[in-house]
Computed example of a mutant assay.
Amino acid sequence: MSKVVIIGGSGHVGTYLVPRLVEAGHQVVNVARGHKQPYRPHAAWKQVETVILDRDAAEHEQRFGSAIAALEADVVIDMISFVLPRTQHLVEALRGRIQHFIHCGTIWVYGHNATVPATEDQPLNPFGEYGTQKAAMETWLLGEARRAGFPATVFRPGHIVGPGWDPLNPAGHFNSEVFSSIARGEPLVLPNFGLETVHHVHADDLARLVMAIIDNRSAAVGEAFNAVSPQALNLRGYAEAMYRWFGHEPQLRYLPFDQWQAMQSPDEAAATWEHIIRSPSHSMEKAKRLLGFVPRYSSLEAVQEAVSWLIANGRVASPQD
């Protein structure tokens, strides 16, 4: 088995990935800024070495890459790089010293999809700082894999969902009060006709995909993989399903976006716009073909598990409230 260093392993994906790595027999090192607890307790964490390292400070001092290289990993998984120079700095320190480098990208590298579900061979068309930077990183990494043999793989998560945090809701933002309103059977107003799409993925399916990437290194190196549920949801279908899950008939109204956003907080309106302007819908066929990977959770199953946790922890109203 391998020594695996995961940078940012205490977050959503790491909560599921780290125990899977330990159970598979890997030696695991979690590099984190502090002693943050994972979202779900698991006995496997007792076998994990934690290295406290402030990435921002270490990169400013040009010592982050050497600090990671000094851990002498076989596999490095980078969950938290958001600008190209950070990735380049790390790769130069690791070049020739690791067997596999796995980078967490995003489906936002696609920008506007010309056809759906979008496949990995479609050209990238990002806009906005986040998507543009992530596209630059994965383009550079995969170029290094082709030109210089650097063993890089990229996975592109959708809207990550799991117990312990607020999922992207049917209004296209993250205010959990939307679920409480649906639970009470109250009306919900959606932008436009509610036909724009969102594409969730359960954090454990992301963990399973990373495991498949590690287990199928020869097929994965030099490749990018979508990382989403089997199907996207449009806002209307998502809302209708959640009303019925709570035992109500849907109570939906629609307004043009300009009118709708005037009824929202600026942050929530901006979050919705960022999601629906992209309307992600992506194919998982490549991961199935090359890695034998199939997601276990549908978008609704992933969301409903997360909302059940919110209800149990008093953060979303139950239908009886």
Score class of each variant (00 low, 15 high):
267 D>K: 11
275 H>C: 12
256 P>A: 02
243 Y>G: 02
261 Q>S: 10
251 Q>P: 09
269 A>N: 01
231 Q>N: 14
238 Y>G: 05
260 W>C: 10
231 Q>M: 13
235 L>A: 03
265 S>H: 10
272 T>H: 06
247 G>P: 04
233 L>A: 10
222 G>H: 02
279 S>D: 05
256 P>R: 02
225 F>G: 03
275 H>K: 12
224 A>T: 08
276 I>F: 07
225 F>M: 03
258 D>M: 13
246 F>T: 07
232 A>N: 00
260 W>M: 05
238 Y>M: 09
258 D>T: 15
268 E>Q: 11
249 E>R: 04
268 E>H: 13
259 Q>R: 15
267 D>M: 13
240 E>M: 04
223 E>K: 10
266 P>W: 03
223 E>H: 11
232 A>T: 01
226 N>K: 07
225 F>Y: 13
251 Q>L: 11
268 E>L: 12
264 Q>I: 07
274 E>H: 14
273 W>L: 12
236 R>P: 02
278 R>G: 00
272 T>E: 01
280 P>L: 03
276 I>Q: 00
257 F>C: 06
259 Q>W: 09
278 R>S: 07
222 G>K: 00
255 L>D: 08
273 W>M: 12
220 A>D: 08
269 A>L: 08
249 E>V: 01
235 L>K: 09
257 F>A: 08
274 E>R: 14
234 N>W: 03
252 L>I: 01
279 S>R: 05
234 N>V: 02
227 A>M: 04
277 I>P: 02
264 Q>T: 06
241 A>I: 09
251 Q>H: 14
272 T>I: 06
224 A>D: 06
279 S>P: 00
235 L>Y: 03
220 A>K: 00
241 A>N: 07
224 A>L: 02
239 A>Q: 03
263 M>N: 15
240 E>L: 05
280 P>Q: 04
252 L>C: 09
242 M>V: 13
224 A>Y: 04
247 G>F: 08
247 G>N: 09
237 G>K: 05
278 R>V: 07
274 E>A: 15
255 L>H: 05
219 A>S: 12
218 S>M: 13
238 Y>D: 10
242 M>F: 12
262 A>M: 15
220 A>L: 06
254 Y>F: 15
225 F>L: 02
278 R>E: 08
246 F>E: 09
248 H>L: 06
224 A>C: 04
265 S>K: 13
246 F>C: 12
229 S>K: 01
222 G>V: 05
276 I>V: 11
225 F>Q: 03
259 Q>M: 11
260 W>F: 13
279 S>G: 01
246 F>A: 14
275 H>W: 11
244 R>Q: 12
255 L>P: 09
271 A>F: 13
262 A>W: 06
252 L>T: 07
241 A>K: 06
258 D>V: 10
251 Q>T: 04
219 A>N: 14
275 H>L: 13
279 S>N: 08
238 Y>T: 05
257 F>L: 02
